[in-house]
């Protein structure tokens, strides 16, 4: 352990995010936001070169594009992926997106639309965007930079934008087997919904975080995965790739205070 190169919590989360794309096959890896995007790039440059990525606009690239101002860097395109083609990719199921919803519930349902009453919301957010279609068609994971009961709500999310495991939401004859919800990478832990009856579990805890703390900051009951352990630390080679993909250190601004990866003892 004391061989570790020092790393930040953001870097730990990038490595945890990258693991979500392992063994997905040839799918479009869409990481929305700096940390998920760096996670996708790290996955492609290490364990999963078969992943497809875009320049976050309209072209496919085989070399993930560094985030932020590009300077002299000239992207090398390998193909084309307009929004219309992304939609076709979504409906064909060949994608794994990691997005940051406003709310997530015990059934892994997500909300990106609004908080509070739908007709007169307390806070209007982005809108459902592509969440309904993404969630019912392809692999999805979540990114949560501020693990709290405001995100992981006690009841059902205020507006179900992305589908989940709540049986009452599924009418007879609707195909549920195309839905594939994998993990939530948060600033405290990695979670999944692989418990009995798709109940939520903690799969790994970030260094210095206790299960009790995660439970306290989650609005619904959590289980411990059988092999619950510590989230793997970034290795020197991974950190080197992360620095290359994020030359302006935008990752440092993603979590409040840019905390270290290993919490100082209280």
């Amino acid at each position: 352990m004391n061989q570790d190169t020092p790393f930040t919590l953001a870097e730990l989360m990038i490595v945890a995010a990258s693991e979500a794309w392992r063994d997905n096959g040839e799918v479009l890896a869409s990481g929305l936001g700096i940390i998920p995007r760096l996670g996708a790039g790290l996955a492609k440059l290490t364990h999963s070169p078969e992943l497809l990525m875009t320049d976050s606009e309209a072209f496919l690239v085989e070399e993930p594009i560094p985030v932020g101002p590009r300077g002299d860097y000239v992207p090398k395109y390998s193909g084309y992926m307009s929004f219309e083609r992304v939609f076709e990719c979504v409906w064909g199921g060949r994608r794994h997106a990691m997005v940051g919803p406003t709310q997530i519930d015990r059934w892994a349902q997500t909300n990106l639309s609004c908080v509070g009453d739908y007709r007169q919301p307390k806070a209007a957010m982005l809108g459902v965007r592509g969440l309904p279609g993404n969630s019912i068609n392809h692999i999805n994971s979540f990114f949560v930079p501020n693990h709290s009961p405001r995100v992981f709500v006690a009841g059902e999310v205020d507006m179900v934008s992305g589908v989940g495991f709540k049986p009452e939401r599924w009418d007879d004859g609707v195909r549920r087997d195309l839905m594939d919800i994998r993990v939530a990478v948060t600033d405290l832990c990695v979670m999944d919904w692989q418990g009995p009856g798709n109940s939520a579990r903690v799969r790994s805890l970030h260094p210095g975080v206790s299960f009790e703390e995660v439970q306290e900051k989650t609005g619904f009951p959590l289980l411990k995965a059988g092999d619950l352990g510590e989230t793997p630390h970034p290795g020197a080679a991974q950190l080197e790739i992360i620095r290359r993909l994020d030359p302006h250190d935008l990752r440092a601004a993603q979590l409040k205070g840019n905390p270290p990866g290993i919490r100082p003892a209280a």
Binding site: W91, V128, G133, M159, V160, W170, D171, L178
Partner: peptide, 9 residues
């Protein structure tokens, strides 16, 4: 389409 099923949409 399947998009929108099982949601509040």
């Amino acid at each position: 389409t399947r998009c929108g099923l099982a949601t509040d949409v």
